[in-house]
C-alpha cells in the first residue's frame, strides 16, 4: 500500500519569466487521495497537468510508478482525468465516450464496449449508454466523465475542480461518490480544488500551495489544527492570527497572556474561532453578533485586538455591545513559523 505512485523531484514549470510551479518536490502513495488546494494562480492546476502530461516540466522530474515520464506526452502515460467541464465528446454517445480510451489503446470494438458497459453498470449509468451527452443531466454527465477516466484502470486518477459545475446542493453527494469510488477501485487520485471545505472532506492528505510552492502538506486534521504558517491558517478555515512576543514560556500580546513552548522572541499564533469561549462580563466587548443558523459569529474587541469567535447556537447568545470575557485553552493555540 505504501508504494510511491507519483513523485515530483524539484519540478519547475515556467511560462516566459513567471514560474507557475517553482521547485516542487512531493511524493504520493498508491491508493491515496491527495488534494492540491490553494487560491487561484497558486499553481495547483499546473501541477495536476504536469502529472497528466498536458504540460511538461521546464526543470526537474515527474515520476509515475517509478518511471521518469518528464518528457512523455499525456497519451503515453496511464492516467485518467476528469475535467472541470467534463469534456465529453458531444458527437459520441455515452458508450462511445467511455469506450474511446480502450479503442484507442488497441482493444477491438466489442471488447472495448464490454469494458465500457461494465463500468457504466458499476457506476449506476446502465441503460443510458445510447444517449448523447447533451441528453444527460449535469450529475450524469459528471459520472460519465468519471467512468471514462477509470475504464482503463489508470495508474492515477486526476480531478480538475470536478465539482465546480455541480449544483451546490448536489456537491456533498457527488464528492462522497467520488471518495467512495476511489476507495472501491483502490485508485490513486489527485484532486484540485480551491474550496477548502471540499478539500477537508475528500482528502487523505492535502497539499496547500501558494505562488507555485508548497506551503504545507498534511492530513486535513494536521492542516486545521496545526497550520505551519499564517497563510495556511488563514486559508483553511477561519483563524485569529495574533502577533506578539514570547518570553519566559509565555506569549504576550496586549492584554493576552498564554503559556507557550518554543523559542523566545517575536511570534505569531493562530487560534480557531470555535476554540475561543465567551463568558458573561469582562474587559472585552461584543462589536457585532451575526446569526448564521447553526452558530453565531461574534467580533470581540479586546484591549489589543479584535477576535473572530464562533459559538454553537445551543449556548446563550450575547448582543452587540455586551461586555464579555474571553477564555482560550493553551492547547488550542498554534505557534506559526515566522513568515
Amino acid at each position: 500500500m505504501s508504494e510511491t505512485a507519483i513523485e515530483f523531484k524539484n519540478v519547475i514549470k515556467r511560462y516566459g519569466d513567471t514560474a507557475a510551479v517553482d521547485g516542487m518536490s512531493l511524493s504520493i502513495q498508491t491508493g491515496e487521495l491527495v488534494t492540491f488546494l490553494g487560491p487561484s494562480g497558486c499553481g495547483k492546476t499546473t501541477s495536476l497537468r504536469l502529472i497528466a502530461g498536458l504540460e511538461l516540466p521546464t526543470e526537474g522530474q515527474v515520476l509515475i510508478s517509478g518511471r521518469d515520464v518528464s518528457n512523455d506526452p499525456a497519451s503515453e502515460r496511464n492516467i485518467g482525468m476528469v475535467f472541470q467541464s467534463y469534456a465529453l465528446f458531444p458527437h459520441m454517445n455515452v458508450l462511445d465516450n467511455v469506450a474511446y480510451g480502450p479503442v484507442i489503446r488497441g482493444d477491438n470494438k466489442a471488447k472495448a464496449k464490454d469494458k465500457a458497459m461494465e463500468i457504466l453498470d458499476q457506476i449506476g449509468l446502465g441503460g443510458l449508454q445510447d444517449r448523447l451527452p447533451s441528453e444527460l443531466s449535469g450529475g450524469q454527465q459528471q459520472r460519465v466523465a468519471v467512468a471514462r477516466a477509470i475504464v482503463q484502470q489508470p495508474d492515477v486518477l486526476l480531478f480538475d475542480e470536478p465539482l465546480s459545475n455541480v449544483d451546490a446542493k448536489l456537491r456533498r453527494k457527488v464528492r462522497a461518490e467520488i471518495r467512495d469510488l476511489q476507495r472501491r477501485f483502490g485508485l490513486t487520485a489527485v484532486y484540485v480544488t480551491h474550496d477548502q471545505e471540499e478539500a477537508l472532506a475528500v482528502s487523505d492528505r492535502i497539499v496547500v500551495m501558494r505562488d507555485g510552492q508548497i506551503a504545507q502538506i498534511g492530513t486535513p486534521e494536521d492542516l486545521y489544527d496545526r497550520p505551519a504558517s499564517s497563510f495556511v491558517a488563514d486559508f483553511i478555515g477561519d483563524a485569529n492570527l495574533i502577533a506578539g512576543t514570547v518570553s519566559g514560556g509565555t506569549f504576550r500580546a496586549g492584554d493576552i497572556a498564554l503559556p507557550i513552548g518554543g523559542a523566545e522572541g517575536s511570534a505569531t499564533i493562530s487560534i480557531r474561532p470555535e476554540r475561543i469561549r465567551l463568558l458573561p462580563d469582562g474587559p472585552a466587548r461584543v462589536v457585532s453578533a451575526t446569526y448564521l443558523g447553526s452558530r453565531t459569529e461574534y467580533v470581540i474587541a479586546t484591549a489589543s485586538s479584535e477576535l473572530l469567535v464562533s459559538r454553537p447556537i445551543s449556548e446563550p447568545a450575547f448582543v452587540a455591545g455586551a461586555s464579555v470575557s474571553v477564555e482560550i485553552d493553551a492547547d488550542d493555540l498554534t505557534r506559526l513559523a515566522p513568515a
Binding site: A52, P73, A74, S75, G80, F83, A87, F89, G101, R148
Partner: peptide, 18 residues
C-alpha cells in the same frame, strides 16, 4: 471548441493525430 475535449482524448491515450 473547448480545448479540454482534446486534452481528455490525450489522457485516454490518443496521440495528436488520433
Amino acid at each position: 471548441i473547448d480545448r479540454s475535449m482534446e486534452e481528455a482524448s490525450q489522457t485516454m491515450g490518443a496521440g495528436g493525430f488520433a
